[in-house]
């Protein structure tokens, strides 16, 4: 564990708490892509099956349990509790175009051709693109509530912090995880446009609005 990874994970944790806070206080999931959230559940379930057979640490275990349970809870909030506030007509990104290629990539690129390893690879590839329906929705509507942009910023920061973590681990442990690194770089790159608007507008006190 190093500080980059710790702060990355905390930022990931914070992003989920921000999202829960947004849904609970506004009593609405307006502006949140159900597809992205459903993809995250898929990612966590596929990746954290090792919860049952591989012990890393109490920290690792608790985080995995939190990520799986909170992401499922968010789906419940969106589909059941605050269902009327979710508008599927603007959440139109075709998630199957993401899942299909990720399955294929995972079958080709994995550390061992076993069920858990292929699932792990699949989850890494899927996570890297899972935010696309959300970003697509943002692009479509052209604006977002400030709290939603904080959620995305925390999520993006988590990804960005994993990069110095890998550099650190390369020098301190000689460990490189090429699948995680390449997918992670792609994932972080997807946030570049968002961060540009976030830094130049939201953090200056303006509303998140994309130029028409």
């Amino acid at each position: 564990m190093n500080l980059f990874r710790l702060f990355g994970d905390l930022s990931h944790l914070a992003s989920i708490l921000i999202l829960l806070h947004k849904i609970q206080t506004t009593r609405s999931c307006r502006g949140i892509s159900f597809k992205t959230q459903a993809l995250y559940v898929t990612v966590f379930v596929a990746r954290y099956l090792d919860l049952f057979y591989d012990w890393v640490s109490l920290y690792n275990f608790s985080m995995k349990v939190f990520f799986i349970s909170s992401s499922i809870y968010i789906l419940y909030l969106m589909k059941v509790r605050f269902r009327p506030t979710h508008d599927p007509s603007i959440d139109t990104f075709r998630a199957e175009y993401l899942v299909g290629p990720c399955v294929v990539l995972a079958l080709i690129f994995n550390y061992k051709f076993t069920f858990p390893e292929v699932l792990w690879s699949f989850s890494i590839f899927l996570e890297s693109v899972a935010i696309l329906p959300q970003l697509f929705m943002l692009q479509r509507t052209g604006e977002a509530e400030t709290i939603t942009t904080h959620y995305l910023a925390a999520l993006g920061a988590y990804r960005a912090l994993y990069i110095p973590n890998w550099i650190y681990r390369y020098f301190s442990e000689g460990v490189v995880d090429p699948i995680a690194v390449i997918a992670g770089l792609v994932q972080t790159a997807l946030y570049v446009d968002f961060f540009y608007v976030y830094f130049t507008k939201v953090l200056q006190g303006q509303k998140f609005e994309l130029p028409a």
Partner: peptide
């Protein structure tokens, strides 16, 4: 590469 079957990152 990481030890197979053991992924310590979240």
């Amino acid at each position: 590469t990481p030890r197979e079957g053991h992924h310590d990152e979240l």
